[in-house]
Write a protein that binds this DNA or RNA. Structure first.
Length: 825
DNA sequence: GATCCGAATATACC
DNA sequence: ACCGGTATATTCGGATC
């Protein structure tokens, strides 16, 4: 009997005889690479029609067997069990089969039986099934006891795996030990951005201890990290060798799912090389979906870009999620600046002959990318780890998961605690039906009256939507269309053209319960965080916040297993009800509520802080369930402006000055990335001088100075660059805006533009009427060639006009008076 | 040909 | 296709005078 403390980093399953075996790929406490073999039942559920004779039905199902895919597909056993489904207790058949791959064929036969109402859990991956039933959770540490397979036994089975030890598990128990992941970050440089064209010039590898660049482009005085190889083929061989020798747990890249690994594969194929860097000796699996994934068995491929894009980006300040911007914000370091376009052009024009200095810099650039990726991994590892442990799906999946995936995984991995049969993934037809349903009414936003205010209090609901779900027990399992005694109810609201109410049973549903546990855990973590802040605790808090906040959106998402537009609409209706009630309560106490958006209210507290706090307490006493209103902050000043069109106050646009002197800007051009720097900076100065000093006149002088500088062409072009993202394929635009026109130009120039690219352009002066006809790439713009009028009238003035109009300073009517209009400068 | 207005588009707020 | 609705602002592009 062998015994090893180990951690499961990766999971898969293989056919053994007629059934399937789970492989847990991981690391032992001593640092050996391990593969643990284990088994679990493979099954799905049949939900019978009400009149079905269960015993007879079970006997019939039990007899299903057929030859399929070179195997005997058969039902091993059928068990009649008491289960819950959609909140109702039912009797269901658990159909155990010998191989999970046969579930599809067997369920198709069982589906035709007259007794069959529904089939469920046929779309649960066998790895997920294993994790649910055996509770061997990814990234948790265990101890395994079992039989170690000898080299001979492995050979006999044809199991040529690149691990130190293979154990057939007999017993797996929890065991606490510290795991430090051994990672290797990598990055390639190639002559072309497009996969299928060009070749690989360099590969860099890095972690805390290693910095290495492999290249066949030789040059004098190379940095010490650079190792020259003969040619591209040798480069790929060395890369494979290095990984084989170093034996990392994770191979980490940035955008490597869709670039580095597919590129490497393509070039390796060119030399008949196999990228056998996985532990199963099977190379890399490329999973083509809407976005490509590259999976290496046992050596988990982490693509940090996916994680940042799906999960982290919403909490970042960065305007893009490029490695440069993200690393700058999260690890305080940037990429080495080189002109990749120029290098690629030179490579093409001189058939690959770059200057020595350029190559040296290029190699350092390549290395820095791996170094940044490695550091970014260290920073994000607690987040990835906490989410993985919490939702209990393998690291590879969590790395690439979206919010809805995470919410759903969390539900799936908890359903068994409630004896629930898991709802199926929606079919193509169901998705299409859901997509065409009309939108429901969402949150309430109160229109502010434009002006500069003093002494503002802000209250907001703590985790508003999650707490509504919990307090009103909202889920597709608990919803009632007609009121039953004791039901919770929504206010009356318009839903799909009718005035109506929805009702929710008192008996706690399992989704609200999972959510309430989540909120409870977050409370504990928050309390813990008050005592001591650690990266792991912060990451745990972020994971819990992410999951709880995404639950409401998940319910209204057409791809969700537990989709319910009625529930999502009910949550929104309750949110509207409680924000209105809060506004009324505050107004009843004599305060002036000037603004509200979704879960927050702003009102003039008139220097009566204590009274405001007392009111907060009073409101809280009247709130049901776990709902709670918090004091967000007190502010010294707040500015609200008018919409550009119409005489209404603009929603979602304000600036506040806190008592500590910090300015909080929302919605203004200052915080928008599709405005030029000059407009944003000018607005920022104007906002600051209005809020901090209360001096609009001084701000006006500043604005006038900027306008004059513009007219005199003293503003550097870089301040006038407008950045707009290409959100679709270039050809699919109906309306060609400036950024689309520029993207087309870039494509003609051979520059890399694709969906998602941030297009930079400057508007130049000229006779052409349309703006897009005068939009140019920044590098195309000669000094002073920019269109002064455009930047004054379309960029700078719109950003400040609305602020000045609060102080009755008009841009037009100032002509002839003591002060001059901005347009005169 | 100038002008008006809705549609298309991007981005932010919560 | 990969969580929801609410909201502002800009530019295009076609209709209208």
């Amino acid at each position: 009997m062998a015994k090893e403390a180990f951690i499961a980093l990766d999971y898969d399953y293989i056919d053994v005889d007629d059934s399937s075996m789970i492989r847990l790929w991981g690391r032992t406490k001593e640092g050996k690479r391990i593969c643990v073999l284990d088994t679990t039942d493979s099954y799905f559920w049949l939900i019978p029609k009400a009149k079905a004779n269960l015993e007879k039905y079970a006997e019939k199902v039990k007899k299903i067997h057929l030859k399929h895919a070179g195997r005997e597909a058969k039902v091993l056993d059928v068990r009649i069990k008491e289960k819950n489904f959609l909140g109702q207790p039912i009797k269901a058949l658990q159909v155990l089969v010998n191989n999970p791959k046969d579930i599809v064929t067997i369920k198709d036969i069982a589906k035709e039986f007259p007794e069959t109402e529904e089939k469920r859990e046929t779309d649960i991956n066998f790895v997920t099934r294993y994790i649910i039933d055996k509770k061997i959770i990814p990234l948790e540490t265990y101890s395994v006891e079992g039989k170690e397979l000898s080299k001979k036994e492995l050979r006999e089975n044809g199991w040529n795996w690149n691990v130190d030890i293979v154990i057939k598990a007999e017993k797996i128990t929890e065991a606490k030990w510290e795991f430090e992941p051994k990672i290797l970050a990598f990055d390639i440089e190639a002559t072309d951005f497009e996969i299928g064209k060009g070749q690989i010039l360099m590969v860099s590898l890095a972690n805390k201890h290693i910095q290495k660049v492999l290249t066949w482009k030789k040059f004098a005085n190379p940095p010490k990290e650079v190792e020259f190889v003969k040619n591209e083929e040798e480069l790929i061989k060395k890369f494979i060798e290095f990984i084989e020798d170093y034996k990392p747990d994770f191979l980490v890249g940035y955008f490597s799912d869709a670039f580095d690994l597919p590129y490497l594969r393509m070039r390796a194929e060119n030399y008949d090389l196999k990228l056998n860097i996985g532990l199963d000796n099977k190379g890399i699996t490329f999973i083509k979906g809407a976005v490509m994934s590259s999976e290496i068995r046992g050596l988990v491929h982490v693509d940090l870009y996916k994680f940042v894009n799906n999960i982290i980006s919403y909490s970042l300040q960065s305007e893009t999620i490029s490695l440069n911007d993200v690393a700058k914000e999260l690890v305080g370091e940037e990429k080495i600046k080189i002109d990749l376009g120029k290098i690629n052009k030179e490579l093409k024009e001189t058939k690959g002959k770059l200057g020595e200095a350029e190559l040296r810099r290029f190699s350092l650039y390549n290395l820095q990318d791996s170094v940044l990726t490695s550091k970014l991994f260290d920073k994000l590892w607690p987040n990835i780890m906490e989410l993985t442990k919490f939702v209990q799906e393998p690291l590879f999946e969590v790395n690439r998961a979206t919010y809805s995936n995470l919410v759903e995984h969390n539900i799936i991995h908890n359903a068994h605690r409630f004896n629930e049969i898991i709802q199926h993934r929606p079919t193509f037809d169901e998705i299409n039906e859901r997509k065409i349903r009309p939108k429901y009414t969402g949150a309430f936003v109160k229109e502010p009256i434009p002006g500069l205010y003093e002494n503002i209090a802000v209250f907001d609901f703590r985790s508003f939507y999650p707490n509504i779900i919990v307090s009103f027990n909202i889920s597709c399992h608990t919803i009632n269309m007609k009121k039953e005694p004791g039901d919770y109810e929504t206010p009356e609201f318009e839903f799909e053209g009718k005035k109506r109410k929805f009702y929710f049973k008192k008996k706690l549903g399992f989704i609200p319960q999972i959510l309430s546990e989540l909120l409870e855990k977050r409370k504990e973590v928050k309390a813990e965080l008050k005592k001591h802040r650690t990266p792991v605790l912060e990451a745990r808090d972020y994971a819990l916040k992410t999951l709880s906040n995404a639950t409401y959106g998940y319910l209204g998402f057409f791809g969700a297993r537990y989709y319910s537009l009625e529930c999502a609409a009910s949550i929104a209706a309750l949110a509207r009800h409680y924000i209105h009630k809060t506004i009324e309560d505050i107004e009843k106490d004599g305060f002036n509520v000037m603004y509200a958006d979704t879960d927050s209210v702003m009102f003039l507290f008139d220097k009566k802080k204590e009274e405001a706090l007392k009111l907060l307490e009073k409101i809280n006493k009247s709130l049901p369930g776990t709902m709670e209103l918090d004091l967000e902050n007190f502010y010294k000043k707040g500015l609200f402006v008018m919409k550009r069109t119409g005489e209404l106050g603009a929603k979602k646009k304000y600036a506040l000055l806190s008592e500590k002197g910090e300015i909080k800007v929302r919605g203004f051009e200052t915080v928008r990335r599709d405005r030029c720097k000059l407009a944003k900076d000018t607005q920022d100065v104007v906002l600051k001088s209005v809020l901090e000093e209360g001096k609009p006149d001084k701000a006006l002088e500043y604005a006038q100075k900027i306008v004059k500088q513009l007219r005199d062409k003293k503003i550097p072009t870089e301040q006038l660059v407008i950045r707009t993202q290409l959100k679709k394929e270039i050809e699919s635009y109906e309306s060609i805006g400036p950024h689309v026109a520029v993207a087309k130009r870039m494509r003609e120039l051979g520059l890399p533009v694709k969906e998602g690219s941030l297009i930079e352009y400057v508007i130049t002066a000229g006779k052409e009427k349309l703006i897009r006809e005068r939009a140019r790439l920044p590098e195309e713009v000669n000094e002073g060639a920019y269109d002064v009028d455009y930047y004054i009238n379309n960029q700078v003035l719109p950003a400040i006009e609305s602020i000045f109009s609060v102080f009755k300073i008009s841009m037009e009517n100032l002509q002839g008076k003591k002060q001059k209009s901005l347009k005169d400068f």
